[in-house]
Design a protein around this nucleic acid. Structure first.
Length: 609
DNA sequence: TCATAAATTACAGACCTGAC
DNA sequence: GTCAGGTCTGTAATTTATGA
């Protein structure tokens, strides 16, 4: 608690506060001004490092939330406002600094000559930042400009020929949706009575939500076109395609033709094998200039914490050669099936986690990317794998020991460089006509080039890594999806049920859509109507269609009761349509409050009609 | 587990309102 | 004019989707 404040010598608070009639306000605001100025002048108090940081930032941060807490909202706001108005303080324009929770301030140029002290009246806590995010990454996020580096991929994304068959996708979504709705009605739960009804209602809401998200995704591709960027951390090339739901990917077309997806089978284990055979941590590795060694070197210097220790441990692992040979043999057949057999052979009792091919695949992902320390080492998947491949497990553990994302990043960078900067460049050179797209470890092209690209994919993978690979080919065709529709719908429902089970059924019933009970429409006729925030909230509702339709029928002074009635079920996909008709037909004046939501989510019974 | 991007929600900060 | 509370808007934070 300070007894006095340090303020600029020529600062006189009474100029700013004398017009306040109430003395407590005068004192409060004066105190606040002094407090703020003192904070600016005597910051940083201690270390050299603090001073450096201050220089770098070019101003003193003030967290408004703390200022208000310490001084009271009114005093803090008024004081800051007046100090800024007369340029006693100047706010630094520094976008995104402190994640917008604080702004940077410096003294105005007229107030930098000398300081004086003034007494403190209140016992006010210093402006500590302890509860607020202290360390903020001030480094700029430098994004690679993909078109400069990988024109062989971006040119197909930019030529406007990549599109999604939105009608077909929408039809598929609706089919799946209705199938799921039918299934939901037959669901038997352990819940009874009211709880059962609640569960189903909630489940239905999630179903609606999920499908409205899917519908949005197709619309996005159609309206916004494709977007792409390349990550600096894992070097992956992210595009609209990588974000798209797996099923919806079947409706993507290039130049009116469907796509063929060429997948590297068991790509992550394969890359692990490549890593284990190359041993970039060994002495020979140090001098090699292959891309794998470069990536490894670069990553170890980047995440250098404990990396020296890590390298020593890696060199000390014995018996690796023999294990890698055994590991490589698994790739002769289907890797996951072979691994599953091996594990079940040696560990017939702890078979859980390796029952099916799919389970084995998940288990492998888990083993690759989870960090196993202390009690986690007793988990069955880890026990089973490590008894079969102790040296490989040791290597993996060591790689994760410095930073737990090391192995994940390493494999992802390997995969990206291999696919994007090596293989696809090679293919593009050989077949310049072939459209090429990537989804991380998969390459997509059109059917007429599929065979050529597939062969080249395999061949250049082998040339670069020295490993034999298998490439799985699948035609992405919306029509063939209908055969597996029921199955997909079941899977989707399972996913949604899992999500629904996570939260307790009875929770949040009354808080479903709290913000939508009332909404203010800022202006109308040619001006902005629904704000984006209100709209995003409105359109996520399962009953999105109702809201806009309903607004159209509303008169001035419409009540919540009126709004609750007449709720037609009309599907509206495009928010813009709704906005426009809202402007034309809704007789509301600027700033008027109109009820948007005044109804509950229909229960299962009501839905049946 | 790891990664990224988009959607969605929460909240800061400025401004507004009506009683006093 | 203040006070106590509100709205509005843009952005940070979180969630949810994708990938492995």
């Amino acid at each position: 608690m300070k007894k006095e404040y340090t303020v600029p010598a020529n600062f006189d608070a009474s100029i700013y506060t004398s017009h306040f009639k109430r003395s407590d306000v005068r004192i409060g605001v004066t105190e606040a001004m002094h407090y703020i100025l003192d904070h600016i002048i005597s910051y940083p108090i201690d270390s050299e490092k603090g001073r450096d940081t201050l220089d770098k930032r070019g101003g003193v941060p003030i967290f408004t939330v703390l200022l208000r807490k310490n001084l009271g909202q009114r005093n803090a706001d008024k004081a800051l406002q007046m100090l800024l108005r007369d340029e006693v303080l100047v706010k630094k324009e520094a976008p995104s600094m402190f994640k917008k929770k604080a702004a940077l301030y410096v003294l105005g140029s007229a107030f930098t000559a000398g300081v004086k002290t003034v007494p403190s009246h209140k016992k006010t806590a210093p402006l500590q930042k302890k509860n607020v995010v202290e360390t903020v990454n001030l480094g700029e996020k430098d994004s690679l400009e993909p078109e400069d580096f990988i024109p062989h991929l971006t040119k197909f994304l930019k030529d406007g020929k990549l599109e999604i068959n939105a009608e077909a996708a929408d039809f598929y979504i609706q089919m799946a949706h209705s199938l799921i709705l039918a299934d939901v009605k037959q669901i038997e739960t352990t819940y009874t009575g009211k709880k059962k009804k609640e569960y189903k209602t909630k489940l239905l809401r999630n179903v609606h939500k999920t499908f409205s998200q899917y519908a949005d995704a197709t619309l996005r591709v159609k309206e916004k076109g494709v977007t792409f960027s390349r990550s600096t951390s894992n070097l992956r090339f992210n595009t609209t395609l990588t974000q798209l739901n797996r099923e919806l990917r079947n409706f993507v077309q290039y130049d009116g033709k469907p796509m063929v997806q060429l997948d590297l089978t068991a790509s992550q284990p394969m890359l692990l094998l490549y890593l284990l055979k190359s041993k970039p941590w060994s002495e020979e590795g140090k001098n090699s200039s292959s891309f794998l060694h470069n990536i490894f070197k670069h990553l170890t210097t980047q995440l250098k914490k404990k990396s020296y220790h890590m390298l020593c441990t890696l060199k000390g692992v014995s018996g690796l050669e023999e294990e890698v040979k055994r590991f490589e043999q698994l790739f002769e057949g289907d890797f996951y099936v072979s691994l599953q057999k091996e594990i079940l052979k040696s560990n017939p009792h702890s078979s859980s986690g390796f029952n099916t091919r799919q389970a084995t695949k998940s288990a492998v992902m888990y083993l690759l990317f989870e960090e196993f320390v202390s009690e986690k080492r007793s988990r069955s998947a880890y026990v089973a794998f490590s008894s079969l491949f102790p040296a490989i497990t040791k290597v993996m553990d060591t790689l994760k020991s410095g930073s737990k994302n090391f192995l994940a990043l390493l494999l992802q960078q390997l995969e990206s460089v291999l696919i994007i900067d090596k293989i696809t460049i090679h293919i593009a050179y050989k077949f310049p006509e072939a459209p090429l797209f990537t989804i991380h470890d998969a390459i997509l092209t059109t059917p007429e080039f599929a065979a050529l690209v597939k062969e080249e994919f395999k061949e250049s993978f082998t040339t670069i890594t020295g490993l034999k690979s298998q490439v799985k080919e699948s035609l992405l065709d919306g029509a063939s999806l209908n055969d597996t529709l029921e199955e997909s719908a079941k899977k989707e429902l399972e996913k949604i049920r899992k999500k629904t089970r996570k939260t307790k059924v009875s929770e949040k019933q009354d808080k479903m859509f709290p913000k939508l009970v009332q909404a203010k429409i800022p202006s109308w006729k040619g001006q902005t109507a629904l704000t984006t925030v209100v709209w995003t909230q409105a359109k996520t509702l399962p009953l999105q269609k109702i809201i806009a339709e309903h607004l159209n029928t509303l008169n001035i002074g419409g009540t919540k009761d009126k709004a609750t009635k007449a709720l037609p079920m009309v599907k509206i996909n495009n928010p813009l349509e709704v906005n426009e008709s809202l402007l034309k037909n809704t007789p509301v004046r600027s700033g008027q409050i109109v009820p948007i939501m005044g109804f509950d989510i229909p229960s299962v019974e009501e839905e049946e009609e």
